[in-house]
Amino acid sequence: MTTASRAMTQLASWPDLAEAQPSCGIGRALRSAGAEIAHFHSDRNVDLHLTARTIRRFENDLTDSTAIRLVPGSHWVTIRLECDADIDLLISLVSVALQAHQRWPDSDDAPSARCNDQSSAALARENTGDG
């Protein structure tokens, strides 16, 4: 079982999430009552709809993680799942995403509807620290 399928299995059991067809048409998705939350595009990549406000709020923490890629202007982050710690990170961020969509839903659906898989501008953020 791949890391993405293990994560999908865990998250699909959450009562606030349901499996759905992703709006981008690629892979599998999980959605809440109000929004698409995650797109599982491959055995290792997941796009997570955090909302622009949440990304701004946690931007420093998100850019510090080598498992996370940000796309400027996107309401989604891409998480590379390579190990159990990356699954744990995804699960924590899904909880944050669900809360964000309940408290501060994106006011403009046009940018948020496009996940990062449709953007060729996905940029890997690297740690800039020395150690």
Rank of each mutant, 00 (worst) to 15 (best):
T66L: 14
P111Y: 10
L93S: 10
C83T: 07
A97L: 15
V94A: 03
L90V: 09
A113D: 06
T51E: 00
A52R: 15
Q102K: 08
L89E: 08
T63W: 13
L70G: 04
F58P: 01
E82F: 09
P72Q: 05
R69L: 04
L70A: 03
A67C: 04
I79D: 01
P111C: 11
V77C: 05
V94C: 09
L62R: 10
W104N: 13
T51F: 00
H101L: 11
P72I: 00
D117V: 00
D86P: 02
L50Y: 14
D109I: 04
E59P: 14
D84E: 08
G73D: 01
I87S: 04
L89Y: 08
A97Q: 15
D61L: 09
Q99W: 02
S107T: 09
T78R: 13
F58S: 03
P111H: 12
R80A: 04
C83N: 14
Q102V: 04
R57C: 01
R56C: 00
V94T: 12
A52L: 12
S95P: 04
A100P: 05
Q99R: 11
A52I: 12
I87M: 07
L89T: 06
I91H: 14
I55A: 03
L81D: 01
A113Y: 04
E59I: 11
L48C: 03
T51H: 02
A97W: 14
T66F: 14
A110I: 13
D86S: 06
E82M: 10
D109E: 07
T66S: 12
L90F: 03
N116H: 05
L48H: 05
V96T: 10
A85C: 03
E82Q: 12
A97H: 15
H75A: 07
L90C: 07
L70V: 04
I55P: 11
N116V: 07
D88F: 01
I79P: 02
W76R: 04
P72A: 00
D88H: 02
V77F: 07
A97K: 15
D106N: 14
T63M: 13
S65A: 06
F58K: 01
I91E: 12
